[in-house]
């Protein structure tokens, strides 16, 4: 019960923000979709592995939506499809990259994502290159929605997906295979001497992380109704890692908290300082890394302990 309290507070806060500021509904939907991808990054970080290429799966989910949209009008079906495509791609790439660790793991992920990016950009006949593809607004559960109703519906879908993913991942991380991720970080060979394939442990987490990223990409595509190759570009991958560290990987709330703060800072900084918003984001991250290595959730955790809410 105590574990659910912060989640309930976060959901309440998001609903409040979305209700008070209509334009925030879009921003928060994007933040939740980013949070899904970052949740996957956070799983890999438990194993001490940093992927600099997960934007590939975000793009895979988003383009799956764009390609399938002419054939189906149902949004939830598109999300399911995007999840499957990203999962398949994650398994394919994962079989290769999970043989490597540390800098090699990070760089190979980067390499795959850049291959994906250049394919999306160069195969003009298929992807319309840098112009990207416009996505016609689909129905949700069969309802054709417009304006605020659509925004609320998509925001709710993103929130539901985030809650479901968060709950499942939290449970997975407490399972033996989830706990073994941390063992890969500290003493991988001992896992082998326990009869466990460390590679299989990492591959499993990798595939799940690709699924989450694809789902996030698909929700993002439905929110913006436009997909471009930039989704797969390496700066986007870097952004996901940035948000993971900002939010903290201690628990599954971190990625979403990080993503919401990231998007809010970006939106406000971009409005107030159009030329310097990236610098502001950089300073925020610098402050977090220096002052709270466990990210925003770590900061909140310390605060809760200090206030006597937690032992």
């Amino acid at each position: 019960m105590r574990r659910l309290l912060p989640v309930a507070a976060a959901v309440g806060l998001l609903l409040l923000l979305a209700g008070l500021q209509p334009w925030l509904r879009f921003v928060l939907t994007i933040a939740l979709s980013t949070g899904l991808a970052v949740l996957g990054i956070a799983m890999l970080l438990r194993a001490g592995q940093v992927s600099f290429g997960h934007a590939l799966y975000v793009a895979a989910g988003a383009y799956a939506v764009a390609f399938a949209r002419p054939h189906t009008g149902e949004g939830l079906l598109l999300l399911l499809l995007a999840g499957l495509v990203a999962t398949g791609l994650g398994l394919l790439v994962g079989l290769f990259v999970t043989r490597y660790r540390d800098i090699f793991f990070g760089m190979l992920n980067l390499a795959f994502s850049m291959v994906g990016w250049s394919l999306l950009e160069k195969l003009y006949g298929l992807t319309r290159g840098t112009d990207g593809i416009r996505v016609a607004r689909p129905t949700l559960l069969g309802f054709a929605l417009e304006g605020a109703a659509w925004e609320w519906a998509l925001f709710s879908a993103a929130l539901a997906a985030a809650l479901l993913a968060g709950a499942l991942v939290a449970s997975y991380l407490r399972s033996p295979a989830g706990e073994a991720l941390g063992a890969i970080k500290t003493r991988e060979t001992r896992l082998e001497f326990a009869g466990i394939s460390a590679r299989r442990v990492l591959l499993q987490a990798y595939v799940v992380s690709a699924t989450l990223a694809g789902l996030g990409g698909a929700i993002g595509a439905l929110a913006t109704l436009h997909v471009t190759p930039l989704l797969a570009y390496w700066t986007h991958s870097g952004e996901l890692v940035f948000v993971a560290i900002l939010g903290g990987t201690g628990n599954v709330l971190g990625p979403f908290l990080g993503a919401v703060v990231f998007e809010l800072v970006r939106v406000h900084a971009a409005a107030a300082f159009p030329d310097a918003w990236q610098m502001i984001l950089g300073l925020v991250l610098l402050a977090i890394v220096l002052a709270a290595a466990r990210g925003l959730v770590g900061l909140l955790d310390d605060l809760a302990v200090r206030l006597g809410w937690r032992g």
């Binding site: 997975y172 033996p176 295979a177 989830g178 706990e179 073994a180 941390g182 500290t186 896992l191 009869g195």
Partner: peptide
């Protein structure tokens, strides 16, 4: 496994014999 508690170190080895891949 330096970042795990002692009991978790042992439990991971118990799990290695069965039920290791049960995700939930």
């Amino acid at each position: 496994f330096a970042e795990h508690r002692v009991i978790e170190n042992v439990a991971l080895h118990l799990a290695a014999r069965d039920g290791f891949w049960a995700p939930f």
